[in-house]
Amino acid sequence: MDTISLKMPVTIKAKLTEKLKAKILGELEEGIKHAELEVQQLNIQEKRVMQENQPEDAENPTPEEIQRLQSIQAHFGQERQKRLQYREEAMARKEETEKLVLGAEIVQGTLERQVDVHVGDDMRELMNVEVLVEDDKIIAIRS
Rank of each mutant, 00 (worst) to 15 (best):
R68W: 07
A35Q: 04
V49F: 14
K99S: 11
E88P: 00
E36P: 01
E65S: 12
E65N: 06
Q40Y: 01
K7V: 03
L102N: 09
S143W: 05
H34I: 01
E105H: 11
I4P: 09
L37Q: 03
D136A: 04
E18S: 14
T11R: 09
L84R: 10
L111I: 03
V49C: 03
K94G: 04
D2N: 12
S71V: 09
E59Y: 10
T110R: 02
G120W: 08
V117H: 07
V119I: 13
I141M: 07
L6M: 08
E30A: 01
E59K: 15
Q41A: 05
Q114V: 02
R87Y: 02
H118F: 06
N43Y: 04
E125V: 02
E130N: 03
R113F: 03
Q41C: 01
P55L: 11
E52D: 06
I44V: 05
I72F: 09
P63H: 08
E95W: 08
V39D: 12
A58V: 15
R48E: 15
M91L: 15
K94C: 08
A140P: 10
T3A: 11
A58P: 11
E105R: 01
A22I: 13
E79I: 09
R48N: 10
A90I: 12
Q108W: 06
T3Y: 01
S5P: 03
L102T: 09
T110P: 04
Q54A: 15
R87S: 15
R68T: 15
A92N: 06
K21G: 07
M123E: 07
N128E: 12
K99G: 11
E56G: 13
I66L: 06
E134L: 02
A104H: 03
D122C: 02
Y86P: 08
F76Y: 12
K47Q: 02
G109Q: 06
V10S: 02
K23C: 05
A90H: 09
E38R: 15
Q85C: 09
A35W: 04
A104Y: 08
A14R: 03
Q70F: 14
V10W: 02
D57T: 07
V117S: 03
V39R: 09
M91T: 10
E130T: 12
R93N: 10
E96Y: 09
E98F: 13
Y86G: 10
I24G: 01
A74S: 12
K33R: 10
Q54D: 08
L25N: 01
Q45M: 14
Q51H: 11
E52G: 06
Q73E: 08
L69P: 13
A58M: 14
L126D: 03
L25P: 00
Q54P: 13
N53C: 11
Q85L: 15
V107D: 00
V133E: 01
Q45C: 04
I24D: 00
L37F: 03
A14F: 01
P63K: 09
E79L: 08
N53W: 03
E38P: 07
E98I: 12
S5A: 05
P61D: 06
P63M: 11
Q114C: 05
A74E: 15
L132D: 00
A90N: 14
R93H: 12
E79Q: 06
G77F: 10
L6F: 09
S71G: 15
K13R: 06
N43P: 06
N43H: 10
V133D: 00
E95L: 13
N53Q: 13
N43T: 07
V49E: 02
Q40H: 02
I106S: 05
I66F: 07
G77D: 15
K137S: 00
E59S: 15
